[in-house]
């Protein structure tokens, strides 16, 4: 195929074009390039860049979203957010959500990926599909299903718990501030688990089989192989998976909005539902006046916190990796 096009090119090569013609041709190519880029750039500028800049402006106003913003409050919105205890609680819930969902998902996903990566295992892709399937379902609809499921078979669970004398009274799983966040977390783990499974499988497949064979010939056991080959070879991919998982969990909105709408009594309020309630009002718990300026300020503050957080994360991971590399060098020098 390649060879054919080579000979054809040799046969049909046109005579070198005059300078003027090549310049015109290049100009036409530029023109087409810009035309091809335009739709993408228009969408990007209109719906991603402009809104970011514009909402920075809103942060300085008190504004209910109708008409033009007029009541200038300066940095008052930021001050109000910083002093709002519900903002800090929702930030705390977001962190708790991430701090539980991410490690549980990663450990379970790695374990399952190790099982499914076995070449001798038949139907591995069928099993992968089973565990991956929740990922393609809508978080909002899953919220509805879980709500129905919990309101219905919650009774069955309650009966079992009461028979075992673990509890005296009926537990209203999504209506009780002590349990609601736990349910949200459990559903969150279930819903996006599949991503991490597929990521780890992809990472495991990049490890060459010869490494395992060589280790086995040297008499290494399974645990030694896992610690000395799998883990170090997965480190680069693992960091990417970790970062993606953390970013994903911080974005949580649909599931909470549909399951609990942040309630009861703000016990499942996460930052994104908090912002939504500021901008559009209408929580179950409070009927606040919508304030777009306040919502924009909250989201910018959250954005800044996330940037600081990810910079710290990158720095910490880098130093850890470097220190490890240095340690290994020292070990290598001694032996």
């Amino acid at each position: 195929m390649v060879a054919v096009s080579h000979t054809r090119r040799a046969d049909l090569a046109p005579a070198p074009a005059p300078a003027a013609r090549s310049a015109r041709r290049r100009a036409r190519k530029y023109l087409w390039s810009y035309l091809y880029l335009t739709p993408m750039l228009v969408l990007l500028l209109a719906f991603i860049v402009y809104p970011i800049v514009a909402s920075l402006g809103y942060t300085l106003y008190q504004w209910n979203g109708i008409g033009d913003p007029s009541t200038f409050v300066g940095l008052g919105n930021f001050r109000q957010i910083i002093h709002d205890s519900i903002f800090w609680r929702s930030l705390g819930h977001t962190f708790v959500y991430a701090a539980i969902v991410v490690p549980v998902q990663l450990v379970l996903a790695l374990a399952l990926a190790l099982v499914l990566n076995n070449r001798r295992l038949r139907f591995a892709s069928f099993y992968r599909t089973l565990f991956f399937l929740p990922v393609v379902t809508s978080a909002a609809v899953i919220g509805v299903v879980i709500q129905l499921l919990v309101s219905n078979f919650g009774d069955s669970i309650n009966t079992i718990l009461m028979d075992l004398h673990l509890t005296h009274s009926h537990i209203d799983w999504l209506g009780d501030p002590h349990f609601a966040l736990g349910i949200v977390i459990a559903v969150g783990i279930w819903h996006t688990f599949g991503y991490n499974l597929v990521y780890f499988l992809a990472g495991l497949q990049t490890i060459p089989e010869e490494l395992y064979e060589a280790a086995r010939l040297d008499g290494a056991g399974r645990i030694a192989i896992f610690r000395r080959i799998t883990i170090p070879m997965l480190r680069a991919v693992g960091v990417v998976i970790l970062v993606l998982a953390i970013i994903g969990t911080f974005q949580i909105f649909d599931l909470v909005q549909v399951l609990t709408s942040g309630g009861p009594y703000f016990s499942t309020e996460v930052v994104n539902t908090y912002i939504y309630h500021l901008a559009f009002g209408g929580t179950n718990a409070s009927a606040v006046q919508p304030d777009v300026g306040l919502a924009s300020a909250a989201s910018f503050f959250f954005g800044l916190l996330l940037i600081v957080f990810s910079v710290v994360q990158v720095v910490v991971l880098r130093t850890l990796v470097r220190r490890r590399a240095a340690g290994r060098e020292r070990q290598g020098g001694q032996s």
Partner: peptide, 19 residues
């Protein structure tokens, strides 16, 4: 294009709504 991946995506639905 790459910068938009790192910009803080604030609460941009309102300006889009407005637009």
């Amino acid at each position: 294009v790459s910068a938009t991946l790192f910009l803080p995506h604030g609460y941009t639905i309102i300006p889009i709504f407005d637009l």
